[in-house]
Every structure is written in structure tokens, then in C-alpha cells.
Computed example of a mutant assay.
Amino acid sequence: MTDDAYLVLVNGTGSTLGVPPGAVGDLVCMDTPAVRAWLHAFGITANSPQLRLVPPEATSAVPEDAERLPVPLGEEELSRVRHQAVPRDVARLEDELLAYRSITDGRDALLTRALAAGVPAHRVAELTGEDLAVVEAAAR
């Protein structure tokens, strides 16, 4: 496995390899001179149906003879590529996990603020669904 994502030219338009770059939204790498020159060399555009973006963990599926270019992706960009590359039912579950993360982000700070404001630990546990021991640990 490699740490690089790859732009890959595939034979035919029915490939399930990676995702079309346009499906991911704006990617910084698509505006780099290296990518523009590579696309130009093959006479294609960023919207070509033969162009696919493959995340690092899937590069072993790229055919040996396929034209490819390693591209740098930021963490958020790579997350979007991976999200687009999974089946729809998995993508929906990933969306739920992201929503869960956004809800629980800052949980300890919220528990601490509630306790500091005088909300009893048992009431915080009742309202949040957290175990009382977890709430009490936030007070320490």
C-alpha cells in the first residue's frame, strides 16, 4: 500500500475503480501544474469519464499498465474521496458516524460546565444518558 492517492486513466467508462474527481468536489491538486500537464499530455480534461481518483488503500487494484499520477490530498479531501468510493449504504452509515462525532465533540467540556454550574451529577447523567461514573469523572 502507498500513502499517495492516484489519478488513473481507465479503459472504458464503466470502471468501478476509485471515483471520478468531479464527484468529490474541489480538490487543490487538480489545479497544480503537474496535474494540468498530465491531463494535457493525455488529451483529457478533469471531467473525462476515463479519469478516476483512487485512495491510497485501493491502489493495489490499479492495473499495472494503467497510466497513473500520484497526487497529494489533504486529510479532508481524502476523507471525501473515501466517502464517495464506498457503497451508498456504507456512505449513509459514515454520515451518521460523522453526525455522532459532531454531537459528541466537546462532550467532556459540556459535562464539566454543567457540573460547575451546579447541575447535580445524577441529573447530568439522566439528561445525557452517560453513565454516572463518567459524569463524576468529568468533575475531577
Score class of each variant (00 low, 15 high):
E64P: 03
T45I: 00
S60I: 03
E64N: 09
E67W: 06
V81A: 05
E57V: 01
D105P: 04
R80E: 07
L97S: 10
R101M: 10
V90M: 05
R107F: 07
G43D: 05
R52D: 01
P49I: 02
P55N: 00
E67C: 02
E94R: 15
H40D: 12
S48H: 10
P56C: 02
V54I: 10
D95F: 09
E76Q: 15
L78C: 12
Q50V: 12
T59N: 10
G74A: 14
F42N: 12
R82S: 03
D108P: 00
E96M: 15
I103R: 13
V62S: 11
V86R: 12
L53D: 07
V62N: 03
P72K: 11
G74L: 11
A58W: 08
A41D: 12
E76P: 08
V86N: 06
A66L: 05
L98K: 15
P49K: 06
S60R: 10
R88V: 04
N47H: 12
D95H: 14
V90F: 01
R101S: 06
L73Y: 10
G106Q: 13
S102F: 06
P70S: 04
T104A: 09
V90T: 00
A41F: 10
A109T: 13
P63G: 11
D105V: 08
A41Q: 13
R68G: 03
D89S: 08
E94I: 13
V71E: 01
R92S: 10
V81D: 04
H40S: 13
P56L: 00
H40T: 07
Q84M: 13
L97D: 05
P55K: 02
I44Q: 08
L78P: 11
A109K: 15
V86L: 12
E96Q: 15
R52A: 04
S79P: 02
R68E: 04
D105Q: 14
Q50H: 15
G43F: 09
Y100R: 10
T104P: 00
V54R: 12
V81M: 12
E57L: 03
R88M: 03
I44G: 02
S102L: 11
L73D: 04
S79E: 11
P55E: 03
T59Y: 05
T59R: 12
N47W: 14
R82P: 01
